[in-house]
Design a protein around this nucleic acid. Structure first.
Length: 249
DNA sequence: AATCATCGCAACCGCGAGCCC
DNA sequence: AGGGCTCGCGGTTGCGATGAT
């Protein structure tokens, strides 16, 4: 634990005052204050956090803590082989554009993916592109090995997937009905959302998924690789929804 | 058991884009 | 037009955990 940087006084005040920003690991109390701030004011205006909550953290630090650790829709746990494959594919396509890659992995942050890449792939070859090819081969072998087990577990996975999807959809609907702070950008009905997120989905497929069976047609995954980067610049609109749902479409 | 190396990840830093006045 | 502010991104660092010797 240490104390760092001195910041000149805040703009707009006649008297310049020195403020010492705290650095280093966040405490539970700091997390609580930040979560409360976002609950009351939503994401953004991070430089207001210190003034409104008393947190001795600068805006950048608050944003980073929220985006990388406190966001309620973050997925915990290890990167799955499927996610690993996506990372490799997208890195081969976009290089170190971590935020772009992260948008295709719901619940994963650019920082997490960046760290994962560095620790798992970067050092395994002289350059990352070689690493990408080697890792892809490794994953293909791994997937082959696990194929039999996956078949055995298929029923159980299908059940879990259905439950997860139902939970996701209920969150969206809760937000729609209750203005839940977790998804402040959502203002669509479930049907509208699916129409937007899954434009290639036929009406029959859409109804099928909406009515409780969320099996993913293989061809719909193709859309994941054709995401238009231009429409993914901000997580405060439909894009956020798209990114959450895209893997299921 | 002690020491050293490596890993994994949270957090920081510098930079640039976009916006507003 | 340009200066200031906010935000997001990618690179880097620091440090605890874990493994190897």
């Amino acid at each position: 634990m240490y104390w760092g940087g001195v910041m000149a006084g805040q703009i707009g005040q006649s008297i310049m005052e020195e403020d010492v920003w705290r650095k280093g690991p966040w405490t539970a109390e700091e997390d609580r204050l930040l979560i409360e701030y976002v609950r009351l004011h939503g994401e953004g205006r991070w430089n207001s956090v210190a003034r409104l909550t008393g947190l001795k953290r600068n805006g950048k630090s608050c944003r980073l803590r929220w985006v990388n650790y406190l966001r309620p829709d973050l997925k915990r746990g290890q990167i799955t082989p499927q996610e690993e494959n996506i990372i490799l594919e997208l890195h081969a396509r976009w290089g170190n554009r971590w935020s772009t890659i992260a948008r295709s992995l719901p619940g994963r942050t650019d920082n997490e993916i960046k760290n994962y890449w560095r620790t798992h792939f970067k050092k395994k070859a002289k350059n990352p592109w070689d690493a990408s090819e080697k890792a892809k081969n490794r994953i293909m072998r791994k997937q082959l090995f696990h194929q039999q087990q996956q078949l055995l577990n298929q029923q159980q996975q299908q059940l879990q997937f259905n439950l997860d999807m139902k939970g996701l959809m209920s969150k969206f609907e809760d937000n729609n009905n209750n203005n839940n702070y977790r998804f402040p950008y959502i203002s669509q009905t479930r049907q509208e959302m699916f129409n937007h997120m899954c434009p290639n989905t036929t009406e029959e497929q859409g109804n099928f998924m909406l009515n409780g069976n969320y099996s993913v047609p293989d061809n719909l995954w193709d859309g994941l690789w054709n995401l238009d980067d231009d429409v993914h610049g901000n997580f405060s609109n439909k894009t956020g929804l798209y990114n959450l749902v895209a893997p299921y479409c």
